[in-house]
Design a protein around this nucleic acid. Structure first.
Length: 395
RNA sequence: GGGCGGGUACCCAAGCGGCCAACGGGGGCAGACUGUAAAUCUGCUGGGCUUCGCCCUUCGUAGGUUCGAAUCCUACCCCGCCCA
């Protein structure tokens, strides 16, 4: 494969790729057999094993690199998880026990290896080397960077201005992450756009340890379901790998129209020719464009069959306002009040919530709105709002 | 260590003796509309109830003053800023 083609693949959908000359040099050496494959580092956060489409953007990129013959190294940050990445956050995360880390890592890999080839992927836990660092080592490491440079980082800067606390150990996060790269002699690191600071710092640290600095490759952040913030678990605006086909399809349908283009490009990975086509479709027939997007994305994770199921469910439940084919059932042997049934079925959290919904006309029995707490004395289907259902079976 | 400011519901943030379950915004939920769980508009958003009124719990923690406190006092815990 010629260099131009390699660069085209590597640079596709990146927000930041730097420095290109260093990459070219390393790649040439690799292609000419003067060195082994480039070691590409990717950090995983074991506190949140539930992967979502935002992660998919990075993983898809890694897949390309893997297919170019590079060595993909996934770092399970079990040690750094005790600190918590300060990126975009204001609170430290809780510490995890080794057992929790192990369990999380397992679910994590189940998801990652739907995209990457497990046999060709190396996995490392950073506690392996970080827990062996002595206080002297840590002093040595932290002596390579200054406080003011650390404070340049956007997150810290904002927190300073907002007069929010910054704890000293939070400075250690980027330093330890950098040390991972030193330990592995990483040639390249992949991550989201929000990792640019950490990666840049890593380059400096590597140089300070007399190593060649890693090449930085970041992918754009995917905007989440709220249409504003980046997709993340803590914002609860994400589409997870493990969402059911119905949820996945529905969630994609719920993104705002303006986001479709991003999703086509970053998630479906369409190239420029197809994007031109898609832009026209979005313009002409946004609903069809979104249906296609929802179908294609669901298909990645659930196959053709799952995508069809998701679409079918959506059209039935939301467009036609019919009942889904899979409704939770509450069995009872004597008549119950509607409020009791919904409480037991978990459709409402409290009686007060029930009363509110009732007065707003959100509760339907067999399709008919009800406004009082009726006694249910026959088998029936209750719908709360658009999305909550309960079948009550009286025996 | 000293001085000052601050800790309010899921988040941000008003309130500063009774009209406070507590303004406003965000988020969430719901209704209308629609091309969808888009957009837009509207309502609701601690719990319980014998439901248009009542009871319980909540304003960092623990006590106290008062007929009555998120609002005043005391102690303690925590955060920010400045000085050292």
């Amino acid at each position: 494969m010629d260099l131009g083609e390699v660069l085209r693949i590597v640079k596709k959908n990146t927000s930041y790729f730097f420095p290109e000359e260093e990459f070219v040099e390393k790649y040439r050496a690799f292609a000419e057999g003067r060195r082994g494959p480039l070691r590409v580092k990717f950090g995983a956060d074991p506190t949140r094993p539930d992967l979502h489409l935002g992660h998919y953007v990075s993983l898809r990129k890694l897949k390309d690199l893997q297919d170019l013959g590079f060595e993909i190294i996934i770092i399970i940050g079990d040690f750094t998880a005790m600190i918590g990445d300060p990126s975009g956050r204001s609170k430290a995360r809780p510490r995890l026990t080794p057992e929790e880390v192990k369990a999380n890592a397992k679910t994590y890999f189940e998801q990652v290896f739907r995209v990457l080839d497990a046999r060709r992927t190396r996995v490392e836990y950073n506690s392996t080397w970080l827990s062996k660092l002595t206080p002297q080592d840590i002093i040595e490491l932290s002596a390579r960077y200054t406080v003011s440079r650390m404070l340049e980082r956007d997150d810290f800067h904002k927190r300073m201005e907002a007069q929010e606390p910054i704890y000293i150990h939070e400075f250690l996060y980027p330093l330890f992450q950098a040390y991972d790269s030193v330990h592995l002699r990483a040639d390249m690191e992949v991550g989201g756009q929000d990792q640019v600071f950490n990666f840049a710092l890593t380059r400096d640290i590597q140089k300070a340890y007399g190593q060649e600095p890693e090449i930085i490759l970041t992918v754009p952040l995917l905007i989440g379901l709220d249409g504003v913030k980046k997709m993340s678990k803590s914002e609860n605006n994400y589409i997870a790998f493990n969402d059911s086909p119905e949820d996945m399809y529905g969630k994609v349908m719920s993104i705002r129209d303006e986001l479709m283009e991003d999703y086509y490009r970053l998630v479906l990975y369409y190239d420029e020719d197809r994007m031109a086509e898609i832009r026209k479709l979005i313009e002409r027939d946004p609903l069809r464009a979104k249906e296609r997007l929802a179908y294609e994305i669901t298909r990645i994770f659930h196959g053709e069959e799952g995508a069809r199921r998701g679409r079918e469910h959506f059209n039935r439940v939301f467009r036609k306002r019919d009942l889904p084919d899979d409704i939770p059932v509450l069995r009872t042997d004597e008549p119950v009040k509607l409020s009791e049934a919904l409480l037991m079925g978990g459709l409402v959290k409290s009686r007060n919530e029930f009363r509110r919904l009732l007065s707003q006309g959100s509760i339907r029995i067999d399709g008919q709105k009800v406004f009082e707490d009726k006694l249910i004395d026959r088998s029936t289907v209750v719908r709360v709002g658009k999305r909550r259902f309960l079948k009550i079976e009286l025996s």
